[in-house]
Amino acid sequence: MSKILYIEERAVTHEEKRAWIMFVVNAVAYGIYAAIILSRAGGGALTAVPYAGALLVTIILAIVTTIVLDIVSGMFNRRESRLKDVRDKEIGRLGDRVGQAFVIIGATAAMLMAMADWNRFWIANVIYLCFAISSVLGSLTKVLVYRGRFPQW
């Protein structure tokens, strides 16, 4: 087969792999946290559940796992795939913009809940939930754009 028609579709850039890692790790980390909290509640009041340890551990593990997987995927990437070009930057900005909305929603919600004197369980959890949604949606957007078309408005 002519080399001109040879397209190695499986090859992805390091930035796309990074988006996949962020998407999977953050989704799994929040899923594990939610499962721990719900199992501890056992049908009782959520505000009575000890959540701080599980929240901190899942966040720290997600960060460490992301860094380790990023390093490992970099080790197995070919040199050309480690480049970051203008398309990677545009896709990165688009994904960050999509995710950013949920950081603002989380911060605003937490501020209003603190002013209304809500239980600190809900304040901490609405912030974590919005961080998780922000990260998952931001990285999902990047993955979808890498796999499909760059949107034109």
């Binding site: 090859a11 850039t13 795939s81 398309r87």
Partner: peptide
């Protein structure tokens, strides 16, 4: 090759593929 063109314009091969296919 796509890799040659990518090297000469300073982008990744994946970007050349996306441009060729009209995805970018």
């Amino acid at each position: 090759t796509q890799a040659d063109l990518a090297d000469r314009i300073g982008v990744t091969r994946q970007t050349v593929i996306a441009i060729e296919q009209g995805r970018y």
